[in-house]
Design a protein around this nucleic acid. Structure first.
Lengths: 207, 207
DNA sequence: CCTTAGCTGTGCAAAATATCACAAGTATTT
DNA sequence: AAATACTTGTGATATTTTGCACAGCTAAGG
């Protein structure tokens, strides 16, 4: 199985598995079956097993998976084992909320700087992070910073992306509601709140 | 084509199409082809046409689609035409950012109240919205409120969901990183920042 | 040691989704 | 009015993703 192409959907689920495993680890359980994990996450056990089996034999037949070992292996696959420095661009409402978001640390992300273009904001501190002038952004790679979170208005998102890519950013988590055109070596993952919101009413039963 | 099952993926793209059409409307364009829209959104033109064709004949062969008409029809499909009242539960960092988020209004959502359990926050105002005690949450349906945005910690998300569903909520936009168990008549759409974040490093080229 | 119960790994089938390719209709030009 | 250039709508095909079912390994109990 090891030489098959790994579906994107599988990669998407790996962080979900980490969360599920954390739940079992918190309960002092050392072993978990695909079925238990499936019940907790509300996906099928076969899918979980298939996902794991793309990467090798993680479990023991008749027994299940060792929680800690599995966590380690998934983190390895996702390349979460090495800590990564990130910057935040855009210190608006969403940006400020993200600065306080505890989830980053869980994956070894450290937000080392925040940037904005508003003179009112520049120089102020949010959650111990100083807001810097976006014009001073350059040569991030020199400081070992490879990731960026974009939380700016859609109109300026592309120019921000261009700028930070030039400075060495290779991974972007984009909250701006727009497509970002980037070189192949750069990966963009977009979270679009409006898109999710816009399809909610469709599913409402019209009483 | 009208009697085929409509793929979820199609529904997911409809709000995206609205965004694209807005772009062309802003340029005073009255007509747009599937190809133009496809170029802007970076998806295939055939896919766009197929998506539309599930709902009927929206375009004119040799011509394209009338921007305004198409907007109206998509909004109709997504049930965005009728304004909807929503509440926000959880006035933490993310909750407060969401209160200021302009995207809700664009889809006819009006956040009429915010709830929290923290005595420090209750009674204060954020963006003209008063924070109310979550204990006072009841009988929302009576006031015509059908949607809720959950932005509370994962540990309490399920109990919040249970509570608001009892009060009449039928649609939930969930930001808590957990599965919500709800009756069939209730629709949950989850946005999970950590999950998206966790898979970003996987795609980084290891130099 | 044998039997039974449990669980993984995975080939194969099924379902869901996306792409292709072109007939059919529209506008424009000559 | 005929030829040309566009563009949609959609059946057919390809690809991607998920589910099924069971062989094969493990552990425990008698």
């Amino acid at each position: 199985m090891k030489n098959t192409r790994i579906p994107d959907e599988t990669i998407r689920r790996l962080p979900l598995y980490l969360r599920g495993l954390q739940f079992f680890a918190d309960q002092e359980l050392t072993n978990v079956s695909s079925e238990k994990l499936a019940d907790f996450l509300h996906i099928s056990a076969a899918l979980i097993r298939k996902d794991f089996c793309y990467f090798g034999d993680f479990g023991t037949r008749g027994v299940g998976y060792d929680v800690q070992t599995l966590v380690k292996q998934i983190r390895e696959i996702l390349k979460l084992s090495t800590p990564r420095k990130a910057i935040l661009v855009g210190a608006g409402n969403l940006g400020r909320a993200l600065l306080a978001y505890p989830g980053f640390a869980a994956y070894g992300f450290e937000i080392v700087a925040a940037y904005d273009s508003d003179p009112e904001k520049i120089g102020t501190k949010i959650n111990q992070t100083l807001i810097l002038d976006i014009k001073t952004l350059s040569k991030l790679k020199r400081d070992g910073i490879g990731l960026a979170i974009i939380a700016v208005p859609a109109e300026v998102a592309q120019s921000v992306a261009d700028l930070i890519i030039k400075s060495g950013i290779r991974g972007i988590l984009n909250f701006a509601p727009t497509y970002l055109s980037v070189p192949k070596r750069v990966k963009v993952i977009s979270i679009d709140i409006a898109i999710e919101l816009g399809r909610l009413p469709y599913y409402l039963e019209s009483e």
